[in-house]
Amino acid sequence: MPQTEAPAPAPRTEAAPRTRLRWWTEVPLILLVYGCYTAGRLLVRGDVSGAVDHGLSILRLEKVLRLNFEHPLNRLFTREPWLGVPADFWYASLHYVVTPIILVWLFRSRAALYRTARTWLMTSTFIGLIGFTLLPTCPPRLLSPDHGFVDTMAHYSSYGWWGGDASAPRGMGGMTNQYAAMPSLHVGWALWCGVMLWRHGGTRWTKAAGVAYPLLTTLVVMGTANHYFLDAVAGVAVMGVGLLLGPVVTRSVDRARAVLAARVPALAGRPGGDISPIVSGGCQTSAGERIPRQRETRLGSPAEPGASSQDAEDGAPAPAR
């Protein structure tokens, strides 16, 4: 009987490379962004007169719009230590604790969502740095006393680790910019945390925390006289712009990585040829010579028909049929 040729196998298309996130690359990236955040806050700390003018302008605008919520809250927090002291602890710590915890939680439990969430947060932070640079703003607590504000963190400094320089630990006030009030990234980061908890928490308690955390943070930053209400509004606006720009940033990074990987194939995990030996790329053999039990895979082509798994492992050709 005439032998019929087996149909040629359909070519297999190579899957697009996927970026795998590793903690040892994420931690330096986050530290780099936080370093830029700190450096940006320090960049314009010497512009005191301009910062005071901007703060007074915001205060006058709020009074015209009847949005001056800072005064009654600040008087309440100053008069009632059971409110003022916890508010100072809230302001001095949660901003630097809750956000990293949620980042780690997303990285470990919601890996598919982590990169989008992280990019949103970082993009918004860089936009906030632009605001600190272009619009240094004196917070209410640093205005002259005749404006009616009390610095609750200085007032209650004996209860905590901070001194009279915002939330900086005692003796480290010179390492912070106290005129980086606009926008309020305390509120912006709290909003990001709230969205993550609401959308991905999965329980009623986490959803409730997702609503309460940004709202309480907004009350805290005003009651402690660290921010104006419009600072909080600007923090929300910055997070909105960061959310819109996040996909653009992600695509730009992916394109840059693809261009770099094309020029340096090792960065894409491709040795550069069709045959990808399991052994180290530095181990070479003469033409026709094989290392015992060495396996070879050809990308894009199926295994030879008729070859058993043992034949493939031993590297011996399949016997003729």
Results as ranks from 00 to 15, higher is better:
Tyr228Asp: 01
Tyr228Gln: 03
Phe229Leu: 14
Asp231Arg: 05
Ala232Lys: 01
Ala232His: 02
Ala232Cys: 06
Val233Pro: 00
Val233Glu: 00
Ala234Pro: 00
Gly235Cys: 02
Gly235Ala: 05
Gly235Asp: 00
Val236Glu: 02
Ala237Glu: 05
Met239Val: 10
Gly240Asn: 02
Gly240Glu: 04
Gly240Thr: 02
Val241Arg: 01
Val241Trp: 05
Gly242Lys: 03
Gly242Pro: 02
Gly242Met: 00
Leu243Val: 10
Leu244Ser: 07
Leu245Met: 14
Gly246Asn: 12
Gly246Thr: 12
Gly246Glu: 12
Gly246His: 14
Pro247His: 12
Pro247Arg: 09
Val248His: 12
Val248Trp: 15
Val248Glu: 03
Val249Leu: 10
Val249Ala: 13
Thr250Tyr: 07
Thr250Glu: 14
Arg251Val: 07
Ser252Thr: 15
Ser252Phe: 15
Val253Trp: 06
Asp254Gly: 08
Arg255Thr: 06
Arg257His: 11
Arg257Gln: 10
Val259Tyr: 05
Val259Trp: 08
Val259Gly: 05
Val259Asp: 03
Val259Arg: 14
Val259Cys: 06
Leu260Trp: 14
Leu260Lys: 13
Leu260Val: 15
Leu260His: 12
Leu260Asn: 07
Leu260Pro: 00
Ala261Leu: 00
Ala262Asp: 15
Ala262Leu: 12
Arg263Thr: 06
Arg263Gln: 06
Ala266Tyr: 11
Ala266Glu: 14
Ala266Cys: 07
Ala266Leu: 09
Ala266Ser: 13
Ala268Asp: 07
Ala268Met: 01
Gly269Lys: 00
Gly269Val: 01
Gly269Asn: 05
Gly269Ile: 01
Gly269His: 05
Pro271Ser: 08
Pro271Thr: 01
Gly272Ala: 06
Asp274Asn: 08
Ile275Ala: 11
Ser276Pro: 14
Pro277Ile: 04
Ile278Asn: 12
Ile278Asp: 15
Ile278Gly: 15
Val279Gln: 00
Gly281Ser: 09
Gly282Glu: 09
Cys283Phe: 12
Cys283Thr: 11
Thr285Gly: 03
Thr285Lys: 13
Ser286Val: 06
Ser286His: 09
Ala287Glu: 08
Ala287Leu: 12
Gly288Ile: 08
Gly288Gln: 10
Glu289Ser: 06
Arg290Pro: 11
Ile291Lys: 07
Pro292Tyr: 03
Pro292His: 04
Arg293Met: 13
Arg293Ala: 13
Arg293Glu: 10
Arg293Gly: 06
Gln294Thr: 01
Gln294Ala: 14
Arg295Tyr: 08
